[in-house]
């Protein structure tokens, strides 16, 4: 796991640098999901032709940083995030960048697309956020997929319990979250989203599955960890230095 630890650290460093350079974007969620993305791309999980769909597109810096780390495109390009004429759009754009398989951002839309691909026979990993379960469309997709035999579909939910205005449970409570998902005929596992062994074991479990990954938003940088204020802001110069020193 040392190798994975180092990959995740490098991905987090990239996220901090690219967001600071962009001057806007979403930091906390991206940092929190760095371990899950590392496990997915470097944990011998993905096979050729497998599709990765990111439903909560605003955390795309972690996706871009991971794809660059995995060699999908040059790492220097990360510094073009959110700039004019860049392939690294503020929210991911289908096929603009190697490895990006869906247009995502407006919440809930990625899951439906992932279910559509799974119905068509593709093997799909759909990454999404807990706050997406406040959208009606998400439950429509969960209901349909729950009723279908789709052994090739995995949903990974970032259960970080924050959204723009505060903690998810205060803005709009989702609990009992796991029971709700189970009641739609899904098998659900809860894991520590920062434990590589648990993440990889869940991702490699055969069959249709929802993985609820408990993560700490802003993970890796002490002054960002658990702070919803970092959902939609980026570090300034001094904060970048402090963050990189910790990573």
């Amino acid at each position: 796991m040392t190798n994975l630890d180092e990959k995740a650290k490098e991905i987090r460093r990239s996220i901090i640098k690219m967001l600071a350079e962009a001057g806007s974007g979403h930091t906390a969620g991206a940092m929190g999901m760095a371990d899950v993305f590392t496990a997915l791309y470097f944990g011998e999980v993905l096979e050729k032709n497998d599709k990765v769909i990111l439903s909560n597109g605003h955390i795309c810096p972690v996706w871009y940083a991971t794809l660059a780390e995995a060699g999908y495109f040059p790492k220097e390009e990360l510094m073009t995030l959110r700039k004019i004429n860049s392939r690294l759009q503020g929210h991911p754009q289908y096929q603009w960048l190697p490895g990006v398989e869906n247009t995502g951002g407006p919440l809930a839309q990625g899951l439906s697309q992932a279910v559509g691909r799974a119905i068509a026979g593709e093997k799909v990993y759909c990454l999404m956020s807990d706050a997406e379960f406040q959208e009606g469309q998400t439950w429509e997709a969960i209901m349909l997929a729950g009723n279908k035999d789709l052994p090739n579909l995995k949903i990974i939910i970032d259960r970080n319990n924050i959204q723009i205005s505060g903690s998810t449970d205060k803005v709009m409570n989702l609990e009992p979250f796991v029971q709700k998902l189970q009641s739609f005929s899904w098998k659900v596992v809860e894991i520590d989203g920062h434990n590589f062994e648990q993440i990889i074991a869940a991702l490699k479990t055969p069959g249709k599955l929802i993985i609820v990954a408990k993560t700490i938003p802003g993970k890796g940088v002490s002054f960002m960890e658990g702070k919803y204020e970092w959902h939609g802001k980026v570090p300034n110069k001094e904060e970048v230095e402090r963050a990189l020193a910790e990573l």
Partner: peptide
Amino acid sequence: AEQNMMGIAAGLAAA
């Protein structure tokens, strides 16, 4: 569930 239906269609088309 028309919103999901359109997304399912997008996924099928992408495939």
